[in-house]
């Protein structure tokens, strides 16, 4: 099952990254759906109060957020699955 899941995941990734299709602009659904219908029904989006969507600033913010999120996830993953796992197996050895 893990193998099937891995293949499915790889297929989806491949479809997503390496298969360019008809003049796709890869806009987000907030633009293609949310803003599109909002405008159709008379509302339009406004700039965020803190607008980081300027030049490469947004790239910086997203990179920083991704790195921080990945670090926190990795740190806690290790704490939870590696360090605690060792503790559990030590407890098991003592009881055995």
């Amino acid at each position: 099952m893990v193998r099937i899941a891995t293949w499915l995941l790889l297929t989806l990734l491949w479809m997503g990254i390496f298969m360019p299709v008809f003049a796709a602009d890869w806009a987000g659904v907030d633009e293609t759906v949310v803003e599109h219908y909002a405008e159709e029904y008379g509302r339009s989006a406004r700039d965020p109060y803190i607008n980081t969507d300027q030049g490469d600033l947004l790239l910086f913010v997203f990179t920083l957020a991704g790195a921080a999120g990945g670090f926190i996830a990795g740190y806690n993953w290790r704490k939870f699955f590696v360090e605690e796992g060792k503790g559990e197996s030590r407890k098991g050895e003592v009881h055995a």
Partner: peptide, 23 residues
């Protein structure tokens, strides 16, 4: 592990799903 996590989850800038400001 931390670096791998960061790279795997690293997003790229783009708008996505949330309801945008002002709508």
């Amino acid at each position: 592990k931390c670096l791998t996590g960061a790279l795997v989850f690293l997003p790229i800038p783009a708008y996505a799903m949330h309801i945008t400001e002002g709508i």
